[in-house]
Design a protein around this nucleic acid. Structure first.
Lengths: 356, 356
DNA sequence: CGGATATTGGTAATCGATTACCAACCCCCC
DNA sequence: GGGGGGTTGGTAATCGATTACCAATATCCG
């Protein structure tokens, strides 16, 4: 460790300025000098110190990203897509998890700002408690929210159109004959939980069916399982359950299976996200697929266009999702056709039928 | 952006040295000065520039970590545990994915070295192709491998005891009456795939049962599904399948279900890792649980003890895993008892029975 | 052949925080 | 009151890469 451009310059018998120029190619040097410098650099194993460069250039070439947790497969797919998009611009990603805790989130924001990231991408864990730290960060550096956002709308956001998503889910189970539908999701500490519940209530009202009291816990397998047991313990099962994400749906399916309830014959279940194992649970899960790649592309596009201090109004970009019909929902009586049992394995799982 | 310690010093009417000392507390200053400096700092919203500090101190307070992919839930749990361990020492984690490609991996190593991370944690994607870049990196900075490692043993490693793991898995299905067992795993480009196959062959030989040709593809749901279809298409099903990881096992279960094969009555399936949804698939998966927290703790401990250039021999730490018996394996005839159907929901899923 | 112009190399400043070193000052005791 | 010991503040160097600015040399044209 520790071979600097001075060492290279000395070995090549030139000044540091010439060495720097030869290596960066930002100004012409004679072929002779270029040759000597590059040879010295490779011989010494010179590796430019990104820290020094960042200090001098006032730019680090890094983007910070904070998500509530990477245990949730939805966030990992978002992270992967964002990383993929950032390749194009030559930026590296600094990834942090807030562990669903506003205090940790604020600390992470501070260390990323101290590290002088060139931009921030965040999915704030709490609709209210995350707001001060996020708004403060947005004042220092370009910042875009993804999936979740904070109250008040002070920063750009890219996410899914939850109203459209829930409308598709509810209309689908209603088309399959459901007259009573219950929504199982997370408590309302974050924007996704709020918007999805609102979208659900709007959709059931419009469809003119009974909207039972929602079951709100967490976006986890464990909560889905628990909610499923609660449903089993109730007087009568609803005709359908719409879930706030796929983890909940999978846990719920497990509880229903243990309770001897057949899906979709006795009850339909619809998930949200379309994570990898949604197609592999039993039965394969009907779910709303988040347009993750498009969202990541929009986030990066917005990030490049944000200028700190520019009083441009905050943008909100909601991308419409698609319902992926698999086998946890009853066939609709007309129109869309559901997937049959089985089928060959293709890229992402079963032969899914998607509504248009 | 851009309030420096000079600004703070000027506002407080002292020199930069006093300001720095007042803020860091590394040397005494009068209460008067301390007070004026801290007030000026908070009023101006001073945030020390970590880049400048890193340049001066020759230490960044960051640890780089490279895993093949964060889509694989095993790697995300390892990452979470490592991050958790690093909290203690006040280090931040710089996370990268190599996308299972040695070239990308080498690039990521280079950018992390250029960013002068204080240490590196890596799960090298390829047993052979990853070796040069990893060994080179290990010469510059403390480096510990986790889970996967490179050939030749030139760098420290922490992982699971695959021989013990496979012995437990094989002995368990044999105790349940299996006489023919097939191993479904990844192609042998990485150490895990190699060690697990070797462990499987050792275990079957010792148990004196038929070891059928292994099916080797990738550590993915899709490959598990495909392998399951291949088994269905064969002449006769084996009595049991041991899988290289849980993703494969879940995909395989799905294929068997579609083929109308009952698990565990007609065939036992054992996974590897015990990721979150292993307990939630149908039936809940019998699997070998990786001791992820212990591994992460060992990795961090080793990393702190490694000194570059120290000719200490490379350490290899293999931690013994535990078999978690759920419902994809036939009850053993004596000794260990399997879990019954159902049970209440506790922390991580079902009421699992674990072998001692 | 002389001077104008283009090109290339070198010196030193810059980015921001830290700290070695020195100077100034205070307090105390003889 | 003066000297010794202890404490506190300031100046400037440091980390490594980049580049503004200047100097030196080469090139070209009349």
């Amino acid at each position: 460790m520790g071979v600097t451009i001075h060492d290279v310059a000395r070995a090549a018998g030139v000044s540091v300025a010439s060495a720097s120029r030869a290596l960066s190619g930002r100004r012409k040097v004679t072929a002779e000098v270029a040759e000597r410098v590059t040879r010295a650099a490779t011989e010494l194993g010179y590796r430019p110190n990104a820290i020094a460069k960042a200090l001098r250039d006032q730019t680090t070439g890094t983007i910070g990203m904070i998500v509530p947790g990477i245990g949730n497969p939805f966030f990992t797919t978002i992270v992967e897509s964002v990383e993929h998009q950032l390749q194009e611009t030559g930026h590296d990603l600094l990834l942090c998890a807030s562990l669903y805790t506003p205090e940790i989130e604020a600390r992470r924001l501070n260390t990323l700002l101290a590290r002088r990231v060139d931009g921030l991408i965040i999915s704030p864990c709490d609709f209210e408690a995350s707001a001060p730290a996020v708004l403060n960060a947005a004042r220092q550096v370009p910042l875009v929210q993804v999936d979740r956002y904070i109250e008040g709308g002070g920063a750009d956001w890219v996410g899914v159109d939850d109203d459209s998503a829930l409308a598709q889910a509810v209309d689908h189970v209603v088309a399959g004959g459901a007259r009573s539908v219950v929504f199982v999701s997370s408590r309302l500490m974050n924007s996704s939980a709020r918007l999805r519940l609102a979208g659900f209530q709007l959709a059931t009202a419009r469809a003119g069916i009974a909207s039972l009291p929602p079951l709100l816990g967490e976006f986890t397998l464990a909560w889905g399982f628990e909610a499923g047991q609660a449903l089993l313990a109730g007087d009568a099962l609803p005709d359908a359950v719409v879930c706030g994400n796929d983890e909940i749906a999978v846990g719920l399916l497990r509880a229903l299976r243990l309770g001897g309830v057949r899906v979709p014959e006795e009850i339909s279940v619809v998930g949200f996200d379309d994570v990898g194992h949604a197609a592999m649970c039993d039965p394969p899960l009907t779910t709303v697929r988040q347009p993750v790649e498009e969202m990541a592309a929009e986030v990066v596009r917005l990030l490049n266009q944000v200028r700190v201090g520019d009083p441009r109004p905050a943008q909100r970009i909601a991308i419409a999702p698609r319902l992926v019909v698999r086998q946890t929902s009853r066939p609709v009586t007309r129109g869309v056709v559901t997937a049959g049992a089985g089928g060959t394995m293709t890229g992402d799982g079963q032969e899914d039928k998607e509504t248009t």
